[in-house]
Amino acid sequence: MGFSMTGRKIDTEGCQGVRFKNVTPEVFSCMKKKLQDYGIEVQSGNSGMLEGNGIVAHFSWDGEANLVIEIKERSLNTYCGQVSGKLKAFWRECQGL
């Protein structure tokens, strides 16, 4: 089934690639700050790992407009929709800068 009793689920479906458009450098740095304020460590640079608050994800930004965040691991009580919803909320907030 893909579920384990360790309290974490390795994702094979559902969490693949949350995509964001219109991510300017300002929006990107705003999103990184919001993630850090939320308790998620973000590696510096345009791509790398996000980790914290029960999730492990990889992010990749093209330096101009397109950001993709792929959730690799999450705690069992965290749903993909919750994570992508939170990311999208940060994106919308940052769009309004």
Rank of each mutant, 00 (worst) to 15 (best):
K9I: 14
K9Q: 13
I10D: 09
I10Y: 13
I10V: 15
I10G: 07
D11R: 06
D11T: 10
T12N: 10
E13Q: 10
E13C: 04
E13T: 07
G14N: 10
G14C: 03
G14Y: 05
C15R: 05
Q16I: 06
G17A: 11
V18E: 12
V18S: 10
V18M: 09
R19F: 14
R19I: 05
R19E: 14
F20R: 08
F20P: 09
K21R: 15
K21Y: 09
N22S: 05
N22G: 00
N22A: 05
N22P: 00
N22D: 11
N22T: 00
V23Y: 00
V23I: 10
V23W: 00
P25E: 07
P25R: 04
P25N: 05
E26W: 00
E26H: 03
E26G: 05
E26I: 08
V27K: 09
V27H: 06
V27G: 09
V27A: 12
F28G: 03
F28K: 06
F28M: 13
C30H: 13
C30P: 15
M31Y: 04
M31F: 08
M31S: 06
K32N: 11
K33T: 13
K33W: 07
K34A: 14
K34M: 11
K34E: 13
Q36N: 11
D37Y: 08
Y38V: 02
Y38D: 15
G39A: 02
I40K: 06
E41R: 15
V42Y: 14
V42E: 12
V42G: 10
V42R: 14
V42I: 13
Q43W: 12
Q43M: 15
Q43H: 15
Q43I: 06
S44G: 15
S44N: 15
S44I: 05
S44W: 06
S44T: 14
G45N: 03
G45K: 07
G45M: 02
G45A: 01
G45T: 04
N46P: 00
N46Y: 08
N46T: 04
S47E: 14
S47L: 09
S47I: 06
S47P: 01
S47R: 13
G48F: 12
M49R: 14
M49T: 12
L50S: 05
L50D: 02
L50A: 07
E51D: 04
G52D: 02
G52L: 01
N53F: 03
G54P: 03
G54W: 03
G54H: 10
G54Y: 07
G54E: 04
I55Q: 07
I55D: 07
I55N: 03
V56I: 10
V56M: 08
A57H: 04
A57V: 08
F59W: 12
F59V: 09
S60A: 05
W61N: 00
W61L: 00
D62R: 06
D62T: 01
G63C: 08
G63R: 09
G63A: 09
E64S: 13
E64L: 09
E64G: 05
N66P: 01
N66G: 01
N66K: 11
L67P: 01
L67G: 02
I69P: 01
I69W: 03
I69D: 04
I69R: 01
I69A: 05
I69H: 02
E70I: 11
E70R: 13
I71N: 07
K72C: 09
K72A: 14
K72H: 13
E73Y: 13
E73C: 10
R74F: 07
R74P: 02
R74H: 15
R74E: 11
R74D: 11
S75F: 07
